[in-house]
Amino acid sequence: MDIRSLVSVVDDDESVRESLPDLLREFGFAVQPFRSGEEFLASEYAEHTKCLILDIAMPGMSGFDVQRELKLRKQRIPIVFITAHKDETVRKAVVEDGAVACLLKPFSDTALFQAMCAALALQ
């Protein structure tokens, strides 16, 4: 396994799974994309992930469901939510629930980088 910090990206949208890992690798992270929350939770990467980038609206488990499941497992992985829905109440709710940030798609590379730094600083 790569000794760089592992970032997992969970999004049902293929273009996000293609583009976001490339950008994160440019930042210097090791990246593993997943098409669903179930796939991520079942993988061996789940316990080594240092930061989780998580889409909110997905078929099957939503981002909230994944966050809740991790809490139940007592796995404290910093989470950066990404969403295409502009909804201030949802954003507030997830941050209050322990997420590092909630980024509205499309987001700039600077915004993403700041959120990543905040997430990894937590560890």
Partner: peptide
């Protein structure tokens, strides 16, 4: 619209 837009910006 935001979904592809997100890909555009990231790429």
């Amino acid at each position: 619209v935001n979904q592809p837009l997100s890909g555009i910006v990231t790429n």
